[in-house]
Each structure stands twice: as structure tokens, then as C-alpha cells.
Design a protein around this nucleic acid. Structure first.
Lengths: 203, 203
DNA sequence: ACTTTTGCTGACCATTTGGTCAAACCATTC
DNA sequence: GAATGGTTTGACCAAATGGTCAGCAAAAGT
């Protein structure tokens, strides 16, 4: 992997950092250059424009989601284990507050997802597919899988996205909130599992 | 109320619209002036600087939250009704995607909440207080109220914040998603109520 | 009627910002 | 060691942007 030259790597790392911290409109090419330890002219030598550089970063960030998606097919663990695994992985992923970055930029320019929308049209959402199968097999309750999908994502993502305000409203310091969040994924997993597993296990 | 001159109202309305759509760094004073139908010089005549104008908008948006908070004290409905009412109201509030605006700006400049943090230190979160009381009265299960608070907010806010990506991943059109969302608050309410009400009602 | 105050604006300014370019730099090849 | 070709940068540019100001117009005093 990584057929990138050394300066390219440094630039992409710096750009990611600056774009995520300040957003597209707030990010400055000079700051990216400084962070990467090169001149602004060099920055433009490697990546023609701010927009081109941004697109690259955005695509890379989106691409990081892909490994997460495959959880539902690999291994033949039971669904409880898979769900717990997904939540933990998703949570770790979300820690690097890239999700705010994505939501922010997608709302600024919905065209950023145009390419991916076509992709989505063909193949069905793997989570939905997996849980619908579980329902057919009678392994979980019959609830709307879309709702389950939304609940799962909401419970994982929002506490990190909205951490600043949660801290304020719950009167928790950074340390306290972080400590609280250590157990959080497990709580979400247990909560969801408890709510969807089939109670009348008449065997 | 409203001891504001006509141009002030127009400016605030325009500014809110532009700031929410583009964020602080992306918003342009010229565009705010255009939207308000006045010159840029006039804009500066009424609000000295971009930052001053922004602070005003931010404060106003935050202030809209306050009416929501009082739900837990008024009326003597039972908690199920109160919770349902809160969810519906919260959801309506969130529709005007101001929440993304707030999270975005708070992450850009955490100092925006400095004033409010002091406020929070004194009085206890009303939701927490109310539900802790319910627990003492044995009306609901004994679960961590902070977690309940986070679950509630996450389930309400995230589906709206992240609507663009949910639409993509669930392959729903704008109309379909909107239609789905009509029933959503009720689902959240039922789901939460079912999970926290005390089962062993030995009476 | 005229003076003063207030509201409003076109023209202008200083700074910032994305982007360019000629020249310098440096490693490799001949 | 000169020629070559890729890399790097200081200096520079045009456009955009937040902000100012003298002056005009319309109320508001008097």
C-alpha cells in the first residue's frame, strides 16, 4: 500500500487535521502548509487547489467507514457478539470526531455524496439485510430494521458529536465524561440486545 | 416584547439564516446584507462586527432551548405524558437544523459556552432532578439518569442532524425520509417508556 | 424655515486568502 | 562537471472580505 511520496503523506496528514478542526471554509492553506512543514507553494505543487485537496481528504475519511460495514458478513459469531463488536468498533472510529466533519461538509455541499449515492442504489444496506435475515430466522423480535439502524447509529454517534454540550448539561468535566464514556458502548450494546432479542424462546 | 426596530429584525432574521446555512467562517456579511435587503454599510451600522452579530444569533438560538427545559416542572401530568410531550417538542425544535449549527460553532470556539457553564454549575439539570425523583418514588426502574438523558437526546437529535447520510444509507428519498420521521417521535417515546417503567408493579 | 439628529449608502481601505511563477535547489545521468 | 528533470520556495497577484467614512436624505426638534 501507500505509493505516496513522503511530502504527500505529510500534506495529507496535515490537511486532514486542519480540515477536521476548522471545516472547509475555516481551513487555511497556509496553516496546512505550516502544519506539514512546507511552503504554501509546495502545497499547491502537490495538490492543485484547496478543493482538490479537500475532496481527497473527504474521500479518505469516508473510506474509513468501509471496514466497519463488513462486520455483518465475516465470522459466524452470533448476532449479539457481532452487534457488540460493531458498537465498540464504531465508537472507536467516532472518537476522532471525524463524524462532525462529515456531517458538516455534507450539509454544506450535498454534492459530496453524489458519487456514493449511485453506489448505494445498487447494493442493499448490509446491516438491514443481516437483521432482516435474523428476523426471518426468528432470532430477533419483529421490529423495523430501519429504526433499529437509526437507533444504533444515534446512540453511538451523538454522545461523541455533542460531547461539549452534554458535558455542560450534565456538569461533568472532560475527565469525568471520558471516564463515563468508557462503559458507554457496553451499555448501548446491552440495551439494544435486551430490546431486540426474542423473548418467547420456546425453542 | 420585541423592542427591535424593523431593520434590526430583518437583519437578525437574515443573519440567522445565513449563519445557520454556512457557519461562522462560511457566512459572508455581504450575503447577510443582501438577504436583509440593505447595504453592507447599514449592516455594520446596526451591528458593529461580524463577531458581535454572530454572538447575538448564537445567544438567541441557545435561548430557544429554555422553553423546552421547563417541561419537567409544569403541569402534573404523569411522567409518560411529560416525556412524550418533551420528545415531540424537542423534535419540532430540532427540525430547523439549528442543532448542527450549535454543535459546529461550539466545537469551533468552546468559549461560546463559557457564560452558560457558570449558570449550569449552580442549578441542577432539571431532567436529571425530575427522573431521580421518579426513581425515589419507585415509579421508574433504577437506571442511570445521565444515560437516560443521553439516550433521549441522541435518539431525538441525531436522525435530524445526520439525515443526509441516513437517507443515503437507507436508500430513502427526501419525501420518504420525511414521511418516516412523522412517526419517529412516537416510536422513540414508546421505546423509552417501555424500557424505564417499573415492571414489578406489585402495587 | 432651518437646524439637528438619525438612518442609510457608495466608495473606499487594509488585510486575508487561494493561487501563480520565475528562479533557486538538488539529485541523477551522461 | 555540465546538462537534465524533478522539487521547493520567496515574492507576487487578483479577488474576496470585514470594516470605515464622508456625505446624502429624511425625520425630528426648535
Amino acid at each position: 500500500m501507500s505509493n505516496l511520496t513522503d511530502p504527500e503523506k505529510k500534506i495529507l496528514q496535515a490537511a486532514k487535521q486542519v480540515f477536521e478542526a476548522y471545516g472547509y471554509t475555516g481551513a487555511r492553506m497556509q496553516q496546512i502548509a505550516d502544519t506539514a512543514g512546507i511552503s504554501k507553494a509546495s502545497l499547491h505543487y502537490y495538490f492543485r487547489s484547496k478543493e482538490k485537496l479537500f475532496d481527497r481528504i473527504f474521500e479518505e475519511t469516508m473510506a474509513e467507514f468501509i471496514p466497519l460495514v463488513s462486520t455483518w458478513e465475516e465470522s459466524d459469531n452470533n448476532w449479539e457478539v457481532k452487534l457488540s463488536g460493531f458498537i465498540t468498533a464504531f465508537f472507536t472510529f467516532l472518537r476522532r470526531k471525524s463524524m462532525l466533519f462529515i456531517i458538516q461538509e455534507v450539509n454544506r455541499d450535498p454534492g459530496l455524496l453524489a458519487a456514493r449515492k449511485k453506489d448505494g442504489k445498487t447494493k442493499k444496506n448490509r446491516f438491514i439485510a443481516y437483521f432482516e435475515r435474523l428476523q426471518l430466522e426468528g432470532k430477533i423480535k419483529h421490529i423495523d430494521t430501519r429504526t433499529l439502524y437509526i437507533f444504533l447509529h444515534s446512540l453511538c454517534a451523538y454522545p461523541i458529536l455533542n460531547s461539549v454540550i452534554f458535558k455542560m448539561n450534565l456538569q461533568l468535566s472532560d475527565k469525568e465524561y471520558e471516564h463515563y464514556m468508557q462503559d458507554y458502548p457496553t451499555m448501548v450494546a446491552e440495551f439494544l440486545i435486551e430490546n431486540i432479542k426474542n423473548k418467547n424462546k420456546s425453542k
